[in-house]
């Protein structure tokens, strides 16, 4: 029996898998966006609106849930390539599962891919999936105090979409206070207030996504790559 010093992060193996997947996506010229939020923030509704608004782009969507395939059916109905991933009770997607999902998607012609992570503001923030962009959604009904309660998610995201802004008149959600709190945690984050229902603010978000996709197509590299450094 011998003692072996490791001093290895528990996510070391995940980080390796994530870097490998990112390199592969860059080589394949595809942009993968990891979409994270709590359950019911409007992830599938937002993705459906983006797919409808941008008919010139070929989409692929990986829907991760603990059970059911209702989300994949909604995306499939729009004509985009979609697969349902079951996490068998796990509350997040890791890089190994994302790689398997990417293989299963067989996204030969799809260029903009979304991973709809499990609905939860805690665990998905702790695992690098291998995506080039981490996008989180905070919906107006959830409240502007969420950055105070779940700081890690806001720190790990490149983009914050504040969704359901059409509901602003009915909730005491302070948009500028929320933005201040988020920027305090993460000065580099991009914030897009949108309503997928009315289309308000969608154009700015979609333009930003296309810009990121063009970067991948032209440079085969992305400036946000590797920025995601899990705290675990």
């Amino acid at each position: 029996m011998k003692t072996i010093k490791l001093n290895a992060s528990v996510t070391a193996s995940n980080d390796r898998d994530a870097d490998a997947l990112r390199a592969r996506l860059n080589r394949d010229g595809k942009l993968l966006v990891n979409v994270m939020s709590s359950a019911g923030s409007g992830k599938t509704t937002l993705l459906s609106a983006i797919i409808r608004d941008l008919p010139q782009i070929r989409f692929g969507v990986m829907e991760a849930d603990i059970e059911s395939d209702v989300d994949a059916q909604r995306i499939d109905a729009l004509g985009a390539k979609a697969i349902q991933v079951h996490t068998s009770g796990m509350c997040h997607m890791d890089a190994g599962m994302t790689t398997a999902a990417y293989d299963a998607l067989e996204a030969d012609d799809a260029e903009l891919l979304f991973l709809e992570n499990v609905g939860n503001l805690i665990c998905p923030a702790e695992y690098d999936t291998g995506a080039q962009v981490n996008l989180m959604i905070l919906s107006v009904p959830e409240g502007d105090d969420k950055p105070l309660k779940y700081p890690l998610m806001f720190q790990k995201s490149d983009v914050l979409v504040i969704s359901k802004t059409d509901a602003l008149p009915y909730f005491s959600f302070d948009l500028s206070k929320c933005s201040q709190r988020v920027l305090h945690l993460n000065p580099k984050i991009r914030i897009f207030p949108v309503s997928a229902k009315t289309g308000d603010g969608m154009q700015a978000l979609e333009a930003w996504l296309i810009e990121q996709l063009n970067r991948i197509r032209t440079n085969q590299n992305h400036p946000l790559n590797g920025w995601f450094a899990p705290a675990l």
């Binding site: 029996m1 003692t3 072996i4 010093k5 490791l6 001093n7 992060s9 528990v10 705290a231 675990l232």
Partner: peptide
Amino acid sequence: GNGVQIREIEAE
């Protein structure tokens, strides 16, 4: 204080 790390293992 926010990390989780494997310090060492005992093995044969």
